[in-house]
Computed example of a mutant assay.
Amino acid sequence: MPDAKMAEQVSKTPGFIAALDQSGGSTPKALAHYGIGPDAYSNDADMFRLMHEMRVRIISSPAFQSHEVLAAILFEKTMDGTVDGTPVPSYLWKTCGIVPFLKIDKGLEDERDGVQLMKPIPGLDELLERAAKLGIYGTKERSVIRLANPAAIKSIVQQQFDIAAQVASHGLVPILEPEVLVKSPEKAEAEALLEDAVLSGLEALPGDYPVMLKVTLPEKPDLYARVMKHPRMQRVVALSGGYPLDEACQKLKANHGMIASFSRALVDDLRVSQSDQAFNETLSKVVDKIYDASVHKI
């Protein structure tokens, strides 16, 4: 069963979820944006060490506090890492009061019929068992929608719910993430189909475990209002999807009840060359802005 105190925080407390889950394919780009080029590392181990140092700098910052940041989504290697000798999930919850989640997908299949399903996730049960022992509260799994293809979107949602059932069997709370691409030529139409498919999936959901949903900021404000009201839905959160921070926050403010789970928009102005004071001040301003958009609506 999910931890009751964590569940209360994730489902009801004002704030947002930080997405610190850039993985293998996106790590070089994330490091380069931070100011660490490929000449700074010679192998994957060095690359992931540098990425871990960046994440620890964020997690241990005085700007990264539970009165604004409810939870953080981690990459597997971050989950397995430490902060001052303490496992990251324990540090987040026991030191910072921030609920830890884990990204579990292993990337995407090639596009077919306007969507990209998740690749198979080998060893998922073992990963979920280990995550639960480390104090992880829930998981996140991402697939992608580009076109408004009804059958393909149903297949995306079905795969998400299938993985969710496996996650829930380990006592963890799944975040479904069927991302509609911001640059989709049929974004509004795809989002409408997605909302219908998610509602149908919720109605057919077996058992009594809760789920969460992470979606692109919709073209139609409050599109997911019905989804939020469903008794199985713990919370609906928004990804920034490539929108600049100010635009993402403006869109988020128009969606009542939806909170942020931003990644790129959260770290976009952070640089390795910044002093600790400048780094913390920059992060604090961004955290305040995302919190405001998650809590104060128009």
Results as ranks from 00 to 15, higher is better:
209 Y>H: 10
50 L>G: 03
87 P>I: 03
234 Q>P: 06
252 L>K: 10
292 D>R: 05
63 A>Q: 03
70 L>T: 03
197 A>C: 05
53 E>C: 05
264 R>I: 00
264 R>M: 04
169 S>R: 03
151 A>M: 03
55 R>T: 07
62 P>K: 08
140 K>Q: 09
232 R>V: 05
236 V>K: 08
16 F>L: 07
63 A>N: 04
124 L>S: 06
119 K>N: 14
28 P>L: 05
115 V>I: 09
183 K>M: 11
103 K>E: 14
190 A>C: 05
24 G>W: 04
189 E>W: 02
295 V>M: 01
293 A>C: 02
2 P>I: 15
243 Y>R: 12
177 E>I: 08
22 Q>I: 08
192 A>R: 15
88 V>R: 02
211 V>E: 07
19 A>S: 10
3 D>C: 12
87 P>N: 11
70 L>R: 10
91 Y>F: 15
23 S>C: 12
276 D>W: 04
146 R>N: 04
134 L>S: 09
186 E>T: 04
176 L>V: 13
203 E>Y: 04
2 P>L: 13
57 R>K: 15
115 V>H: 04
40 A>F: 14
10 V>Y: 07
49 R>M: 10
154 K>P: 01
251 K>A: 06
228 M>K: 10
101 F>I: 08
60 S>N: 14
57 R>D: 12
257 G>N: 02
13 T>W: 03
208 D>F: 07
294 S>F: 06
226 R>P: 01
154 K>R: 14
32 A>G: 08
265 A>Q: 10
158 Q>Y: 13
227 V>W: 13
234 Q>A: 15
174 P>T: 02
210 P>S: 14
5 K>I: 12
78 T>H: 06
247 E>A: 09
188 A>W: 01
220 K>A: 10
169 S>P: 00
289 K>A: 13
40 A>P: 06
66 S>E: 11
272 V>H: 04
262 F>I: 07
151 A>T: 03
31 L>W: 03
270 L>P: 10
45 A>G: 01
22 Q>W: 07
138 G>H: 00
121 I>D: 02
263 S>Y: 12
240 S>W: 05
241 G>K: 06
73 I>P: 06
147 L>G: 00
53 E>D: 13
29 K>G: 15
285 K>C: 06
222 D>E: 15
195 E>I: 08
295 V>H: 02
137 Y>F: 15
178 P>Q: 09
81 G>H: 14
39 D>R: 08
130 R>V: 00
276 D>I: 02
246 D>W: 02
68 E>F: 11
195 E>Y: 11
287 V>F: 04
65 Q>T: 07
254 A>L: 04
106 K>N: 10
238 A>S: 15
276 D>A: 13
175 I>N: 10
84 D>N: 06
42 S>H: 13
198 V>Q: 00
146 R>K: 14
245 L>I: 01
262 F>Y: 14
223 L>E: 04
35 G>C: 12
197 A>L: 05
97 G>M: 12
273 S>R: 12
270 L>S: 11
238 A>I: 12
3 D>V: 11
226 R>Q: 09
183 K>W: 11
200 S>H: 13
264 R>F: 09
64 F>S: 15
148 A>W: 01
274 Q>P: 03
22 Q>M: 11
162 D>R: 07
258 M>R: 03
7 A>T: 13
19 A>V: 10
283 L>C: 02
85 G>Y: 10
172 L>I: 09
298 I>H: 12
200 S>E: 15
27 T>G: 11
257 G>K: 00
272 V>G: 07
232 R>L: 08
65 Q>S: 14
49 R>W: 09
